Amino acid sequence: MRTSFVAGNWKLNGNQASISALVANINAGLESLNQTTVAVCAPCVYVPLVHTLTQNSTLKLGAQNVSNYETGAYTGEVSAPMLKEFGCEYVIIGHSERRALFGESDEICAQKFVRAQQAGLTPIFCVGETLTEREANQTEAVISRQLQALLAIIDVQDLVNSVVAYEPIWAIGTGKTATPEQAQAVHAYIRQMIANLNKSVAEKLQILYGGSVKGSNAAKLFAMPDIDGGLIGGAALNADEFLTICRAGNKA
């Protein structure tokens, strides 16, 4: 039986004061959410602060990126063991903004997944297509390519200790959202792709939807049989909105 999972991706936002207030307000609303795991993925420099703020909370801590190297002369990089040492349990890998803006290939994203798991972190592995690719009926081909690059270097059993997030790039920060049926179709495709390799792993794998999820549409999205929660962007910066989304996961 899969449980719901909602993770907030704060992206390049926040300062000490705003983050402290945001975490305090989220913590205050978590008591009733006993059926949903809730995490926030902070900018790297604020990871120690959020770790301190969540010491007596069920709120989980994640990072937004990780290096595909563990140690060495890689100026500016942050390794998985470093994140683990400062309390991270999760890390987002392969977010569309990393792929599109910073040139992270399918192969690099796969390497980061391995590094994260080696350090004891749970990867939130992102896949998704552009509007051009969707209109050309290439959604499944793109998802397959991104996942096959990962499956080429891991055992399918390793997916049990991970999360997959489907992010239609055309719905991120645009206000557009895949309909529940559109999102469900892709989630079902992902689960079936894994089931073809290992049915037990597919049944256990949490697959999140990410793409302009709001309090107003979360319940319908999370009610779909293969959508296990959400990777939340802008709405995660507002505690009330974020908690509304988390409650939708709790009911689902």
Rank of each mutant, 00 (worst) to 15 (best):
Y209D: 05
N238C: 11
I93S: 00
L22Y: 09
Q192C: 11
P180W: 05
K11S: 09
Q146K: 06
A42S: 13
I207H: 09
I26L: 08
F125D: 10
G8Q: 06
P168W: 06
L12K: 06
S18R: 11
A185H: 09
V213R: 03
P123S: 00
I124K: 06
N68T: 00
L208F: 09
G62T: 01
G249F: 08
L151M: 08
A136T: 12
E133R: 01
A236I: 07
G87K: 06
I19Q: 02
V38F: 03
I154T: 14
R134L: 05
A100F: 02
T58K: 13
I19T: 06
D228K: 02
T36C: 13
T177N: 10
I93Q: 02
Q55A: 10
G233A: 13
S200E: 11
L33S: 11
A136Q: 13
D158N: 14
N250V: 05
S144G: 01
A178I: 07
E70V: 15
D240W: 07
W170A: 12
P225H: 02
Y209G: 09
A165V: 12
G211A: 09
A39D: 04
I232H: 04
V45A: 11
H187Y: 12
F86E: 01
N198V: 03
D226M: 10
A202R: 11
G215K: 09
I93V: 15
E70L: 15
I232V: 15
Q206A: 08
A141K: 10
I227A: 03
L205Q: 12
G14T: 07
Q55N: 04
G8L: 04
I124N: 11
N25L: 15
F86K: 03
V40I: 14
K60C: 11
K112N: 08
S67R: 14
A141L: 09
F5D: 05
D226N: 15
V201R: 10
G233L: 04
A17F: 10
R2W: 07
H95I: 03
M82N: 00
F5S: 08
S20W: 03
T132E: 15
A21C: 12
L53D: 10
A202P: 14
E70C: 14
V142S: 05
M82W: 05
C88D: 04
Q16F: 05
S144N: 10
M82Y: 01
L221F: 04
D240K: 15
K112R: 14
E97I: 13
L197T: 00
A80P: 06
V38K: 00
C109N: 14
A100M: 06
A219R: 02
F222Q: 08
L147A: 02
G249T: 13
A28F: 09
A188R: 13
L59A: 00
A165S: 09
L49C: 03
V78T: 12
G210H: 10
T139N: 02
R2E: 06
S67V: 08
I227D: 02
V50M: 00
M193V: 01
Q157Y: 10
L208N: 08
Y69V: 09
E107N: 08
V91L: 04
S18T: 15
